[in-house]
Design a protein around this nucleic acid. Structure first.
Lengths: 348, 348
DNA sequence: ATGAAAGCGCTAACAC
DNA sequence: GTGTTAGCGCTTTCAT
């Protein structure tokens, strides 16, 4: 194996090694490896040959320090266990793949202090741009964001003031919108089931928008149930059972996400409850994963991949450049009534 | 805001800025910021005060170049859309959080050339260790791995030869094991439903082990159906319908993962098929997410979080140290019969 | 088309 | 306990 040449060296190879092996100056080797400047066909071949034979991998640390340019885009999300975020990431990747930029992911577990640490650690690598979920950050985080000197896009949410750019939906509006559809369909005794959400600001805002819109109609949430930990079908079942046992007269159940909503749906069907006649159901997210259940849950698409794509495009446009005006994109989620929410008499 | 002091500078702050602001040498500032060496209480306070006021974020690029140490652990997985991988990542994070090390994630989309590129890009940042899924890599990738000079752990699979350390399960054995349970339960006309798997080596190996064990019993897969793209309940439904329409006499359906298996289960229940009497079903992965379906699908736990944790522990032990003997851990997945696979007469 | 010198921002090693 | 010097592995700039 040719690459064993390096394995025996017991230290990472440097440009100098390639330079000596090819009989070409370090500078020219560097030019060849980066496709910069004019290099004769002949030297180029010699260099590439040598680099390949040795198994040379450039040291980006040194390169970044010298050139003051880093092609990394830091991406910070609360979780990967919630399918929503991987979908956003794939939108980001899709766009950045067309550029020189490369995403690097960090996860906060919805903890502000953890976000602060992850942010600090990522910024210390001087990325070319930063994408992070949400508009709520600690003061220290916000200070770092402001003085980072790179394009920053806050995503997923538009209810608040971003530090720089923003791409998201209004979760308050989404909650309101769903409440209106529910009321228009004629439901009146409405229950809510969701996560304990002190830290999930988007779920909280949906809930706030929801209750607010109900209030406008002279209604309020008749009963509610909260859970901790990850979302699952089982959680949805258990919560629904608990809620309906306590408040058997509810005629609608609004879930903070599709996964628990699916559990609720299965529970209702098990109990031979007429859905959406006796009880209507709705979730949030538009998880395609769940299509194929006995009935299609009413839900609202959160525009995940679009958000990722647009955020990445903003970074790609602004990275390295003197940042112009901050872009703010508010996307509009689509309501899907599915089979679990009666169509109302009025149209919206 | 104090941090605006830096915002006005329009260039990233350096150690020198903190040094000047605090009247302490760069070296001592460096010591304070890294908690290294003895520094008097008084100077320490002065430095921290200045650093905080300015909003200084150390430049790890320069630090890493000077110290020749990077605290990053590169983690490369095929996908984030398959819940399995986020679970592995959380196992990794859990362990690395206790150390100075920090995971950085890359995604390959199951494409070998993409893995090669991601690997190259990540290695060029000279991480302290590397964790990657699978044992199958291009020659170039393998060459990079061999000469990287850092601890490397290949995870999720144990059917093959790792470059260095390895933590995984035998998917061949998992497939065999499931086949045996199925045959022992008395099923004979067995169908298989899975991804087109030229690139998903683990799914392929499960299938190979499965057919191999059937062959030992004088059986073979009676019919099969393959799909492309992501797994979903709907896919499982559609495939199951197609397969059962074509081969109505099948008495068992083995799915390459739980998500499509769940779709198959729902389809069978819709059709009033007696499960597991008339037809038995099984999937793979032990996705807790799906608990709560009308019946619990027979499945096999892939030890995801354990794999992540053990891999991270290996990295933590070996990072920086002269690598001792390569560790090889083969975990044993647990078979869960659930409600969709009859218990056989013999015990295993 | 190629090379030499300087230096990116930090830390190791050694003075004091 | 603190400061000084050298240099990490590249790229920039300027010379040839």
């Amino acid at each position: 194996m040719t690459s064993d040449a390096s394995a025996n060296l017991n230290r990472p190879l440097t440009l100098r090694d390639v330079s000596e092996a090819s009989g070409v100056s370090e500078m020219t080797v560097s030019r060849v490896l980066r496709n910069r400047g004019d290099v004769s066909e002949k030297t180029r071949d010699k260099v590439l040959e040598a680099a390949k034979t040795l198994g040379y991998v450039p040291n980006k640390i040194a390169g970044a320090l010298a050139s003051q340019r880093v092609n990394l885009v830091a991406v910070i999300v609360p979780s990967l266990g919630n399918l929503v975020f991987p979908e956003v990431l794939s939108g980001i990747t899709e766009v950045l793949d067309e550029t020189e930029l490369q995403p690097v992911y960090g996860v906060t577990n919805y903890e502000p202090e953890r976000e602060e640490k992850v942010l600090y650690d990522m910024l210390s690598w001087r990325p070319a741009g930063l994408i992070l979920a949400g508009l709520e950050h600690t003061d220290a985080s916000r200070a770092m964001l402001r003085s980072a000197g790179i394009p920053i896009v806050e995503i997923m949410d538009s209810d608040g003031t971003p530090v720089d750019a923003m791409v998201g939906i209004s979760h308050r509006r989404a909650g309101r919108h769903m409440a209106q559809a529910i009321v228009e369909a004629g439901y009146r005794k409405i229950g809510f089931l969701g996560t304990k959400m002190p830290l999930d600001h988007r779920a909280r805002k949906r809930f706030e928008g929801f209750t607010e819109a109900l209030a406008k109609e002279g209604l309020e949430v008749a009963d509610q149930e909260f859970y901790e930990g990850g979302s699952s079908i089982m959680k949805g079942r258990e919560m629904t059972q608990a809620l309906l046992t306590r408040s058997p007269d509810l005629d609608f159940l609004y879930y903070s996400n599709d996964m628990v909503g699916a559990g609720g749906l299965l529970y209702c069907l098990d109990q031979d409850i007429d859905v959406p006649g006796q009880i209507g159901l709705a979730g949030f997210n538009g998880l395609r994963l769940l299509e194929g259940l006995p009935k299609t849950l009413a839900t609202m698409d959160a525009c995940r991949a679009d958000i990722g794509r647009e955020a990445a495009q903003i970074i790609a446009r602004h990275a390295g450049h003197p940042s112009a005006e901050a872009e703010r994109h508010v996307l509009k989620p689509t309501l899907a009534l599915g089979d679990t929410l009666k169509r109302g008499p009025r149209r919206r």
